[in-house]
Design a binder for these strands. Structure first.
Length: 585
DNA sequence: GCCGTTTTCGGCCCGACTGTTTTCAGTCG
C-alpha cells in the first residue's frame, strides 16, 4: 500500500472511532498521522524498512505498528475488524449538516438506521423528532440536508468559488458601513477545492452589513442569519458565510477565519507558551478574560499578531500547518511567486488540434496581455479525438508560426509564438513523434493521455523514460487527476520527480483549475531535487490565459519562488534554457 | 493515540450557534 492509501485508511479509522464514541483526541491522532504521511518526502517503505517511522512527528508506537502492517501486507486486522463493526452508511451520514458522530450513533442505536435512505424514511415518518436530544427542527434540517446533498456536490473547484466570491466582495467593499473586508477560509488560502466561501468584514453597524449580504442578488436561500454572522446558499449550491466584527478585532478574526484549523491550533499553542491566549477577538494577556479589549495585545494587522508570537508574517497560502512555522521562526518567508512575474507560457492549444483560436488570434491576444512569448503545443497524432497533428501538419504549423514571428519582427514587435507539441507518451514510454521531428520544435511537453489502467510500476516507467528523453523539456499534468472527477492514475510521483531532477527535465504545474497537477504538496520536494516548475494554462481558449493567475496562487502553496519557475524568464534566457536541455549552446 | 525546557501522566485550541433543554450537549469552523 502506498502512503496515500495508508493515509486514507487512517482517516477512515479516525471517522469510525468517532462513530463508536471514542475519545476525540484519539480520533484526532489518526487524522494527524494521515496528514504527517501525506507530506513525507521519503518513500514510506524506506521509513518502515529502516524502523524510522516513529521519528515522524505525530506517529507513535501504536500507529507505527499499524502503518507498518498496512505497508507490508496491504491489510490491517484492527481496521478490518473496526470497519466490520460499523455499518458503512453511517460514515456517509456524517456529511449531512447538523449530524455529527454522537447524533449518528444515537440514530443507529435507537432506531436501527443504517443508511441515508432509512434515515430519510425515519424522518419522514416523524420518528426522529421523538428521540431524546432531537426535535422537530432537527428532523426537518436532516431532511433538508439529504435533499441538498442529492442536488449539489459538497465541494467545488477553486475557480468556481472565486468567480462567485469576487462580486460579493465588491459589494462588501462598496457598502458604506464596511470598514475592512476580505475573503477568508480556504478561498484565501487558495485550496484547490472549496467547501464554502468565507467572508469577513469589520463595521460599526453589523446588522446593516449582514442585511446587505443576505439580500443580495444570487442568493438562493438564507440558512442562518444572526447579529454578526450569516450563511447563504448561492446558485450552484455554493454556501457563503459572512462574519462581521469590530474593526479592532478585524486582524484577529481574519487570521482566525483564514485557518487552516491545524494552523490555528499551532498558533494558539504558541500563544499559550507565551502566557497569552488567542481567539478570533484578540490576543489576550490573561488566561481567563478572553473578550476584554483592555487586556488585549494591540495589533492592527495580521503581521503584528505573527510578530507577537515570534513569527514572520506567513502568507495565507502557506497556512496548512506544514513547514511554515519552522520557516517563519527563522526570519521573513521568502518572496513567493506572483502571477505578474510570469512572462509567458509553454503549453497551450490552437484550432489546429482541440483549441478554439487561430495562431494569429493567440499571438495578438497574448501580446495584448503583455506576455513576451506563448508556446503553441497542440496534441500529437495519437490523440485523434483531439485532432492531434501528424508529422506533416506539425511541419506546416511550424512554418506558419515562423511566418507570424517573421512578420512581427519586421514590424519591430518583440512578442513571439514558440513552436511546440504536447506529445503523447505511448506504451513503454515511447513518444508519438521521432526525436528528429521533436528536435525541430522550440518546446516539447510530454503527457499521458491513454493507457491509464496500467499498474504503478508501468506508469512510473513510462513517465521516467519520457523525462529522460533529451528532447522533452517538461512533463505535462503528471498524475492525470481531475479534481472532484477522477483520481490520479497510479504512479510513484517521488520516483518521477527524482528522474526529472537527474535529467534536468521540468515539471508542469498545470493551471487548469480542474487539474492543478502536480499537486502543491509535492513542490517543496521537487524544488529540493532541483526540479524547475513551469506554470502552464494548458489553454484551449484565449480566456484561459487567466488560469495562470489561479495557478500562481497554487504555486505559492508549494512554496515556489519566481526563481523556481521557468516561465518567469525573459524570452532570451528561456531560449538558452530550452537549448541547454538538448545539449546545445 | 501522541507527547514532553512542568517528561511517562495528564493534558490535548476555543468560541458561537442551534436546538433542545431548565443548565447543556452536540456540531461547526
Amino acid at each position: 500500500m502506498d502512503k496515500a492509501q495508508v493515509a486514507a485508511v487512517l482517516n477512515e479509522i479516525g471517522t469510525l472511532l468517532e462513530l463508536k464514541g471514542e475519545n476525540p483526541f484519539k480520533t484526532r491522532a489518526y487524522g494527524n498521522a494521515a496528514r504527517a504521511l501525506e507530506v513525507l518526502t521519503e518513500p514510506l517503505e524506506t521509513l518502515v524498512a529502516e524502523g524510522r517511522l516513529g521519528e515522524v512527528q505525530g506517529i507513535g508506537e501504536a500507529l507505527e505498528k499499524k502503518i507498518a502492517e498496512l505497508v507490508q501486507t496491504g491489510r490491517l486486522g484492527y481496521y478490518e475488524e473496526l470497519k466490520g463493526s460499523v455499518p458503512p452508511g453511517l460514515v456517509a451520514m456524517l456529511a449531512i449538516p447538523g449530524l455529527g458522530p454522537k447524533k449518528v450513533k444515537a440514530l443507529n442505536d435507537k432506531l436501527g438506521v443504517e443508511t441515508i435512505e432509512q434515515l430519510e424514511h425515519a424522518c419522514s415518518s416523524g420518528k426522529v423528532a421523538g428521540l431524546a436530544g432531537f426535535g422537530e427542527k432537527t428532523q426537518a434540517k436532516i431532511l433538508e440536508g439529504i435533499a441538498f446533498r442529492r442536488a449539489y456536490a459538497s465541494r467545488h473547484l477553486l475557480s468556481d468559488a472565486l468567480a462567485a466570491a469576487e462580486p460579493i466582495l465588491e459589494r462588501l467593499r462598496a457598502h458604506p458601513d464596511v470598514i475592512r473586508c476580505s475573503t477568508a477560509g480556504s478561498v484565501r488560502r487558495f485550496k484547490e477545492t472549496i467547501g464554502d466561501i468565507d467572508f469577513l468584514a469589520s463595521s460599526r453597524k453589523p446588522a446593516a452589513v449582514i442585511g446587505s449580504f443576505t439580500d443580495q442578488p444570487g442568493v438562493l436561500s438564507v440558512s442562518a442569519r444572526g447579529d454578526t454572522k450569516a450563511s447563504v446558499v448561492l446558485a450552484g449550491g455554493l454556501q457563503a458565510d459572512l462574519r462581521v466584527v469590530r474593526d479592532d478585532e478585524y486582524p484577529f478574526a481574519l487570521a482566525y477565519f483564514t485557518g487552516s484549523k491545524e494552523h490555528n491550533i499551532v498558533m494558539r499553542q504558541r500563544a499559550i507558551v507565551r502566557g497569552l491566549r488567542l481567539n478570533e477577538y484578540g490576543l489576550f494577556r490573561s488566561a481567563e478574560e478572553t473578550r476584554d479589549p483592555a487586556r488585549r495585545v494591540r495589533c492592527r494587522t495580521e503581521e503584528e499578531i505573527f510578530e507577537r508570537l515570534g513569527l514572520a508574517w506567513i502568507p495565507p497560502e502557506l497556512r496548512e500547518a506544514q513547514d511554515e512555522f519552522a520557516a517563519a521562526e527563522l526570519g521573513p518567508i521568502p518572496r513567493l511567486l506572483e502571477w505578474t512575474d510570469l512572462r509567458g507560457a509553454l503549453h497551450g492549444h490552437s484550432n489546429w488540434s482541440d483549441g478554439r483560436h487561430t495562431l494569429e488570434e493567440i499571438a495578438d491576444h497574448m501580446e495584448d496581455l503583455g506576455f513576451e512569448y506563448w508556446a503553441v503545443t497542440d496534441h500529437s497524432k495519437s490523440s485523434f479525438v483531439a485532432h492531434g497533428l501528424d508529422a506533416g501538419r506539425l511541419r506546416r504549423q511550424i512554418a506558419a508560426i515562423r511566418d507570424i514571428n517573421r512578420r512581427r519582427a519586421d514590424e519591430g514587435r518583440t512578442f513571439r509564438l514558440l513552436c511546440g507539441s504536447e506529445v503523447d507518451i505511448l506504451a513503454e514510454g515511447a513518444l508519438d513523434f521521432p526525436d528528429e521531428l521533436l528536435a525541430e520544435l522550440d518546446v516539447v511537453v510530454a503527457s499521458l493521455h491513454q493507457g491509464f489502467s496500467r499498474n504503478e510500476a508501468e506508469m512510473t516507467r513510462r513517465l521516467v523514460k519520457a523525462a529522460e528523453n533529451r528532447y522533452v523539456h517538461m512533463l505535462g499534468h503528471l498524475t492525470g487527476r481531475l479534481l472532484l472527477e477522477r483520481e490520479p492514475y497510479p504512479v510513484n510521483t517521488l520516483a518521477v520527480i527524482d528522474a526529472c531532477g537527474a535529467a534536468g527535465t521540468w515539471i508542469e504545474l498545470n493551471c487548469n483549475p480542474r487539474r492543478f497537477d502536480l499537486d502543491w504538496r509535492l513542490w517543496p520536494h521537487a524544488t529540493r531535487r532541483g526540479v524547475k516548475c513551469v506554470l502552464n494554462p494548458d489553454a484551449h481558449h484565449n480566456d484561459q490565459a487567466g488560469f495562470l493567475r489561479l495557478g500562481a496562487g497554487v504555486a505559492r502553496k508549494g512554496w515556489l519562488r519566481a526563481a523556481d519557475v521557468i516561465n518567469t524568464l525573459s524570452l532570451g534566457l528561456l531560449q538558452r534554457e530550452l537549448n541547454r536541455k538538448r545539449g546545445r549552446r
